[in-house]
Nucleic acid binder design. Structure first.
Lengths: 342, 342
DNA sequence: TTGTAGGCGTTATCAC
DNA sequence: GTGATAACGCCTACAA
C-alpha cells in the first residue's frame, strides 16, 4: 500500500519481517511448520509492502501454473458463453485462472491457439467437440496437457469428454416429430464441415427417419451458420419448395427463431401449418411467438463438470473421464400434430 | 513430434542445431542478426523436437507476459460476452492472451480477481464501469498495470475509458418517448447499487423528464436484475397500478423482452396501449413481437477499441485514453405515439 | 554473426 | 521451526 518503488519481492518481505526468504515462501504457501509469531510478522510485512507474488517465477520453479485454457468457437453464441461462464466460475473458486481463445470454427487457428496455451503453461485445456487436427491432440499429449472435450461424450484414449450424445439428440428430435404424425420432415442444420456436433445431430435425425420407414434422402437439409437471418432464409427456401415440410428441426434455437420469424411474416401458422423444433433451450426460446419447443443442452453444467474434472486429482479423474449429461425435450408451443393432408 | 521425454528446452534445440542457446533464443525472437543457414537449422531442430518455449521463464526474464486480464460481471449476458469476444479476437491477432474473470457484480470479488491477475502478470486489465473499490485501482496503480474502463467514457487520472455516456443515453430515451407525446413514463432499470451504468441511465432519464417540465418523482422506477422474468414481473407491477404508464424504458433488452411478453399475455397492445423501449440492441430485439425499439450499445467495438488501447505504445495511448462511442436509437415496432387520453 | 555468463523471483532440498 | 543454497528455463549484456 505504500507508494514505494514498484513491486516488493519475497526478499523484501523477508527483510521487513526479519526472517529468511524461505520462511516467507513457506508462510505464503500455507506450510504449517512455521511458528505463529513469525507467520504473523510475515503476513504483516507482506501487507505493508503491498507484496504480490510473481506468478512467473513461481510457475518456473514449481512447474505449477494454476492456469487453464479453453478454445471455443465463439463467445457470441450464448451456448458457449454460458458454458465458459460455468467453467470459469468453478475454476475461480480454486484460484485457477482461465485463458480463453475463440477459434471461429477454424481448426488451424485452434492449433495455433493450443500451441500458445501450451507456451503459457496451461495445465489443462477445454475443447469443444471431438473434431480437431491430429497435431493439436499430439501437441497436448506431447506436453502432457490434460484436455477435455465438451458437447460430446466420446473420450479419446487420453482425453476426457463431458457432454451429450448429439446423434441421440438428433434421433430424439426426429422421433418426437414423427410421433406427432409428421411425415414430411426437414432440417436446418449448422454447418457440418469440421463440426461433429452439427454433423451428429443431422446423422441422428436422418437415422431415425430411416428407421421409421421414411426416406432420409427425401428430407431436405439446409446447412447454415448459426445466425438468426439464416434461419429465416432457410425457412423460406423450405417453405417455398414444391412440397413444403410440415415439421422442421433446427440445429439451434437461433436458427429456429429465425424460422419462426419467417413464418410469422408470411402468415404461416406455427404449429398449425408447420411445426418447428429448436435446439439448445436458450433464453430466446421463451421469447418467440409461439414459444419454442426445443432440446435443452446443459451448457452451464458442462462447464462446471469440465472444471470438476480439471480440478480433480489424477486418481479421481478416472471416474470423471466420461460423462454423458441428459438432454431434455422441452415441449412448448411451436410443435403440434401434423396438419391433415389436403 | 518425437515421442521422447516430455519437453525439450532451449538448450536441447541448441545442441541439435549445433549452436549456442543464445542463438536459438535470437532466432525464436526474430532477431535479424542471425545468419540464414543457422536460422534454418534452428527452426528445423525446434520443429523436430516439438519445442515449445516456456512462457514462465520467458516472462520472468523479460518482464513481459503478453497477458491481459478482463473482469466482467458475467458472460451470461450477451452484452458482455460480445464485448469480450471482440477484445479477445483483437488481442489474439497479436498473440496476446486473455484471462477472464467474472465478478457477478461483486466489487469485493473483483478486488480478489484483480490481485490474482496482478500475480499472473497481466500487463493490462479491462474493467466494466467506473465504480470499483479504491483498493482495486490502488493495486493496479501500484503494480503499474494499465487499466481500461468500458461501458463508460469517464477516465481516471491514470486509467482509460472506452464506451459511451450512460446518462446521455438515458436522456435520449426520455426525449424520444416524450417527443412521441408520452407523459406518463416509467422505467424498469437494472440494479443501480454498485452499478454506475444502470445508475447513469436512470439519472439521465429522470433528468430529461424533469427538463421537460414533468415531475421525475412521479415516474415509477423498478429495479431488477437483468433477467427475462424480472422484466415480466416488473411490467405487471407497473401496469396494474392505479395510473399505468404509457411508455416504459427498460435498462436492457432482456427486461424489455420480458415486459413485452407480459403485455402479450395480458393482451395489452404494444405500442397501442403502452410503448416499450429497450437498451443494448441484442439479437433478441428482432425476435419480440412487435420488434423492439432500443438503444444500440457498441459492445463488440468497445472490446476492439479496448484491445487497440492495450496494444498501443505508451505514446499512442495518450490519444486513445478516452473514447466515446456513439449509441444509436433504433426505432422498431414497440414504440409509438402516446394513446389519446380517455 | 555468434558464444559465454549471470541473473530474473521463487521454491525445494538440505542442513542446523 | 528456520536458514542457506541451488536450481527452474530463458534473455541479454558483453565479449569474441
Amino acid at each position: 500500500m505504500d507508494s514505494d518503488g514498484g513491486d516488493a519481492k519475497l526478499v523484501d518481505v523477508a527483510r521487513l519481517a526479519g526472517c529468511s526468504p524461505a520462511t516467507v515462501s513457506r508462510v505464503l504457501n500455507g506450510n504449517p511448520t512455521v511458528g505463529r509469531s513469525v507467520r504473523d510478522r510475515v503476513r504483516q510485512a507482506a501487507a505493508e509492502l503491498g507484496y504480490v507474488p510473481n506468478g512467473s517465477a513461481r510457475a518456473l520453479r514449481s512447474t505449477r501454473t494454476r492456469l487453464v485454457g479453453a478454445i471455443i468457437p465463439t463467445l457470441d453464441h450464448a451456448i458457449y458463453a454460458t458454458m465458459v461462464d460455468g467453467l470459469q466460475g468453478r475454476l475461480a473458486e480454486k484460484d485457477v485462472s482461465l485463458i480463453i481463445n475463440t477459434s471461429v470454427y477454424d481448426l488451424d487457428l485452434e492449433l495455433d491457439q493450443a500451441r500458445l496455451l501450451a507456451e503459457r503453461g496451461a495445465e489443462s485445456i477445454v475443447l469443444v467437440g471431438t473434431r480437431h487436427k491430429p497435431q493439436t491432440l499430439a501437441l497436448l499429449e506431447h506436453k502432457r496437457i490434460a484436455y477435455v472435450f465438451t458437447y460430446t461424450c466420446a473420450p479419446t484414449a487420453t482425453g476426457a469428454a463431458i457432454g451429450f450424445d448429439n446423434e441421440k439428440a438428433g434421433r430424439t428430435a426426429a422421433r418426437f416429430l414423427i410421433d406427432l404424425g409428421h411425415r414430411r420432415l426437414a432440417m436446418i442444420a449448422g454447418i457440418t464441415q469440421d463440426n461433429d456436433r452439427a454433423e451428429g445431430r443431422l446423422a441422428g435425425f436422418r437415422d431415425e427417419v430411416a428407421r421409421s420407414g421414411l426416406d432420409p434422402a427425401a428430407v431436405p437439409v439446409i446447412e447454415a451458420a448459426y445466425a438468426f437471418g439464416n434461419g429465416r432464409s432457410g425457412m423460406r427456401t423450405l417453405m417455398t419448395a414444391a412440397e413444403p415440410p410440415t415439421a422442421v428441426f433446427c440445429g439451434s434455437d437461433i436458427l429456429a427463431a429465425g424460422a419462426i420469424k419467417y413464418c410469422q411474416e408470411e402468415r404461416i401458422a406455427v404449429p398449425g401449418d408447420v411445426s418447428i423444433l429448436g435446439f439448445d433451450n436458450l433464453e430466446i426460446a421463451e421469447l418467440t411467438v409461439p414459444e419454442l419447443s426445443t432440446l435443452e443442452v446443459p451448457a452451464r453444467d458442462m462447464g462446471r463438470h469440465a472444471a470438476d474434472y480439471i480440478l480433480a486429482s489424477p486418481l479421481q479423474r478416472r471416474h470423471l473421464r466420461q460423462r454423458e449429461l441428459p438432454i431434455r425435450l422441452i415441449v412448448r408451443g411451436s410443435t403440434g400434430p401434423a396438419p391433415k393432408r389436403r
